[in-house]
């Protein structure tokens, strides 16, 4: 049993280090000894609370405008459909063949007032995996976010990296004039993401 656990820990640590997540590996390894039932429920509660804080960011217009079930992205703080220009998700999430998102959205925000915002690879999730969050309860949003079948085939470690580094995610805190930013700073958000994951990535009922 000891040998088996040691082997598992060794393999896991190697895989995590190769994936570039030493902090996450060490935190998970610390979590391997089976917690007592009361500890577990306390951890779960802490995780659920951390996700509730995360959800304030995930449901802000900067995230929600593109994580939509339909085909027309939303824009602005009011979440207006981008229908005035007949903008659609398209077969790859980057617009229709002759009307690509990047026809207007550059790799950075435009300096012109009222011009479109920009970040590298501006796009919606592809139609094959819409990653739609609109209208979900906090619990359902949590389950959607950690389900690889709904989150873009990401493990929790990959999801952490996505939220920490992806240019489209980071753009939410630099959206250009006239657009609100999420209620937590990116640093505060990532603290909550780590807390959620370290405590079991639990979801509210």
């Amino acid at each position: 049993m000891k040998l088996g656990l040691g082997l598992f820990r060794g393999l896991f640590a190697s895989a995590a280090l190769l994936a570039g997540f030493p902090w996450y590996a060490s935190d998970l390894l610390r979590a391997i000894p089976t917690p007592q039932k009361s500890d577990l429920s306390q951890q779960q509660s802490q995780s659920v609370r951390a996700f509730a804080a995360m959800a304030t960011v995930l449901t802000s217009p900067r995230c929600l405008n593109c994580h939509i079930p339909g085909d027309a992205p939303l824009h602005g703080d009011e979440g207006k459909p981008h229908k005035e220009l007949n903008i659609k998700r398209g077969p790859d999430g980057r617009g229709t063949p002759a009307m690509r998102c990047a026809n207007c959205h550059q790799s950075e925000n435009s300096t012109a007032l009222h011009a479109p915002p920009g970040a590298p690879n501006w796009q919606l999730p592809p139609p094959s995996m819409r990653m739609a969050w609109q209208g979900l309860s906090t619990g359902d949003l949590c389950r959607t976010l950690k389900d690889p079948a709904k989150n873009g085939n990401m493990t929790l470690a990959q999801l952490y990296r996505h939220l920490d580094e992806h240019p489209l995610v980071l753009w939410a805190w630099n959206p250009g004039p006239g657009r609100s930013i999420p209620p937590l700073s990116h640093e505060q958000f990532m603290v909550k993401v780590k807390e959620w994951m370290d405590n079991g990535a639990a979801c509210a009922e």
């Binding site: 220009l85 007949n86 903008i87 659609k88 229709t96 063949p97 002759a98 009307m99």
Partner: peptide, 16 residues
């Protein structure tokens, strides 16, 4: 991109 476009293809490409 679409050599024989439908009216919908034209709407998608040209509305803007």
């Amino acid at each position: 991109k679409i050599p024989q476009p439908t009216d919908e293809d034209i709407n998608d490409a040209m509305t803007a």
